[in-house]
Design a binder for these strands. Sequence first.
DNA 1: ATGTGC
Length: 499
Amino acid sequence: MTSKSSMIAEMIPTGEATAILPTGKTSPITVIGTESIRGTFDDLCLQQALNSRLAPGVTELVLNPDAHCGYGAPVGCVMVSPTHIYPGPVGVDIKCSMSLLQLDLPSDAVDDRRTRRALIDAICERTPTGAGKGQRNVSKARKVEVDLGERVVTEGASERVCQELGIPPHWASRCEDAFHGGYRESSDGLRDRLGRLRGQRQLRQFENKISQLGSYGGGNHFGECEVVEIGDDDRARSVAETFGLIDGQVAFLSHCGSRGLGHQLASGQFSSLQAKFHQWGIPLPGGDRQLVYAPLGSPEANAYLDDMALAANFATVNHLLINALVLEAFQEVIPGTQGQLVYFISHNIARQEVVGNVKSWVHRKGATRAMPGGHHALQGTPFEQTGHPILLPGNPRDGSAVMVADAGAEKSCFSVNHGAGRVLGRKRAQRELDQTAIDREFDEHDILSNCRRYPRDEAPAAYKDFDEVLKSVKQAGLASEVARLKARFVIKDASKADD
DNA sequence: ATGTGC
């Protein structure tokens, strides 16, 4: 163990800093952050970074500028292992992701507040918010029965699944991974796993979980209507064209994950692995039971990867269905509206990638994949020349960002942050932030919301300075900004705010 | 994050 101050002292001010661990010079942590951002990492967050770096089989650890305390590993880190899989550094919301839908509407189409109110109502009718909330008012064609639900979680965004749910099948080509997190060719193994889970009653109320397809959930999940502002340089304009972004037009940004299903599968994996560690008497990394792991090739690792894939498939189809429903809502309010998916990309997933020359599992926990043009893994995708879109939520007041990776991203294992990152804990934000000031700020920026009062623990002031976070990424040479997204209205779970 | 928590 080392103190926060000695660890910080080793960091290089430009961002690509290295912290030396007590084990010696061979175990660096890569820290991305300007000086002021590095001041936002508290002791527990740094301790979690140390524990994760020192855990068995871990070869790389990157701490991102949006990092804060997480489950075993910090939210906002990348952890690499060629030999072990770690459920904690994937997180409890498996394949929590961002998606962006570009609409063919000029920004003035959403200037009128009544139009925006109508859009909020039409979207909320189709995509409920809140824990436990599932679909409502769904047309019979979109009602997801159990047999279709089984195909959703075992096939992901297959052509057949997309067709049956009214999702344009070509949107699958705009997904970081359209199925399984890309780790298993066939769905048969997943069908076996699903059957076993349900047979052993380890996956309860599957019908209920499946009914949550097309819903946002709560917490920091949201849907947000945006106006696209493409950066004022040639590269931004050219990359934006490949991404399908249109300057001055309306877009819709969504943040959600695998809902109750992912939560249930992740929790089940934590408890079964913790029981095995206890039974076998294996030491926990850093003494933290949230850092349980399984060696690759073991039955435990395979079971985890199967469950991760089931949840990942749910999250993928959930996002695509939400985007289809949002487009339908726009078409109801503004007939003739067309929309194209820009991209769907996760920030809570483990993927198999080559790091250095070693095939490894890259755990991104609150971190976004960032592969630049020319990266071998992008061959055959629409983004092999430019690099893929990176979707980063900021906050409604300051906007969100679309970025593209640069060559420097290799030093962060081809990853960037996943947003602004919390600076105030939820309870502290609830206690300290002023509701009237928050609501006034939204009024001043003419941002509408479905919430009568915006949740205080989700207010912009509860998060780090987004510009400083982006500056950290740019200064370290990881990625460049392509566009800013400026909020016009926000859809969030209001149940905790209406007190 | 969550069939929501001090």
